[in-house]
């Protein structure tokens, strides 16, 4: 692995401002890191001596765990700063939290926050590189990267594919980051769901919007189901989960409308029986657990690029 990579950003705040080349750089690096998970000693010295703070101000288990494992496998010192144990619940502002963390000289801060734009605010008050691990309903770039990695691995390419993103588009940072990334990589992107969960102006992001899932699924190469975000008051947008599952959930009958080799994805955590039926989630076309595995490798790639680590992977 060489030090010359097509990536010129100090932070990873979103997919909107990355080029196709930069995305591909991260995906390629991720492939290299994937193999480390299969070693008996799952650790490389790449970021030895670097400090990574996971600043998680919104509940999360899998993303935080994934980042934590990624940091550990790169030999970085990872520290978790979560909402429950932080002073943010005592009324400290994000800026004060940032300057306090900055005083401890971390190299990378990974932030999860309930409000859009928080990672950008953080960059203005901290010297460390900032990774957005999800900000409100704005972006979740490492999720889009691991999704692109998964699609590329299973389909051999991304350009020219038809990708359908189904469900709660309005509240979904995963949808936004995937739309930005997949459009840059040359995929056709369709979004589908009840009209009350499709945000106004979504077509301006270069996607085709469908208010029923069936026509969206026709001829699809990739079907990405999104979680109904009941915690973000998505509940008021449709009658109930029973009707949602009947009209918009992905089941075997609907999946048959997609291409025979279409893959099924879900960023998790799933509401089984709501947006996705168990037979599909656990079926042969589901690549959901591969997404999780690739999440660690992609996050290693991101930490590597932003952490300025040594090139020693062996």
């Amino acid at each position: 692995m060489t030090g010359a990579h097509a990536f010129s950003h100090k932070h990873l705040l979103g997919m909107e401002h990355l080029s196709a080349e930069e995305i591909t750089t991260i995906l390629d690096l991720g492939e290299n890191f994937l193999e480390i998970a299969n070693r008996s000693i799952k650790k490389v010295p790449t970021l030895r001596g670097k400090t990574v703070i996971n600043l998680f101000l919104e509940p999360s288990t899998r993303t935080r765990t994934s980042f934590e494992i990624a940091a550990k496998r790169l030999s970085a010192d990872g520290v978790n700063f979560t909402a429950a144990s932080s002073s943010t619940t005592k009324g400290e502002t994000l800026i004060d939290t940032a300057t306090n963390l900055d005083a401890m000289s971390p190299d990378i801060v990974v932030i999860r926050h309930a409000q859009a734009g928080s990672p950008l605010l953080l960059t203005k008050h901290i010297k460390a590189a900032v990774v957005n691990a999800g900000d409100g309903q704005h972006e979740h770039p490492t999720q889009a990267l691991l999704d692109a990695s998964t699609i590329r691995a299973h389909k051999g390419k991304i350009e020219g594919l038809t990708v359908v993103i189904c469900g709660d588009i309005d509240h979904s940072r995963v949808a936004r980051s995937n739309i930005f990334a997949l459009r840059k990589l040359g995929a056709r992107v369709r979004v589908a769901g009840p009209r009350s969960l499709l945000p106004l102006g979504i077509e301006s992001l270069g996607v085709e919007a469908f208010d029923r899932v069936e026509p969206a699924l026709e001829g699809a190469d990739v079907v990405m189901m999104l979680r109904i975000q009941l915690e973000r008051k998505a509940g008021g947008r449709f009658p109930n989960t029973r009707e949602y599952a009947r009209l918009f959930g992905l089941n075997a009958r609907r999946l048959a409308l997609a291409k025979p080799d279409a893959i099924v994805m879900h960023p998790g955590p799933m509401n089984r029986g709501v947006e996705i039926s168990p037979e599909v989630a656990d079926g042969p076309r589901s690549v959901i657990l591969d997404q999780v595995a690739r999440g660690v490798a992609i996050r290693m790639a991101v930490l590597y690029l932003l952490g300025g680590g040594s090139d020693a992977v062996e």
Partner: peptide, 15 residues
């Protein structure tokens, strides 16, 4: 404002 910009930048919109 709820529209293309709020959708893109992920801010909750009001119509």
């Amino acid at each position: 404002h709820e529209g293309a910009a709020s959708t893109r930048i992920g801010l909750r919109g009001q119509p």
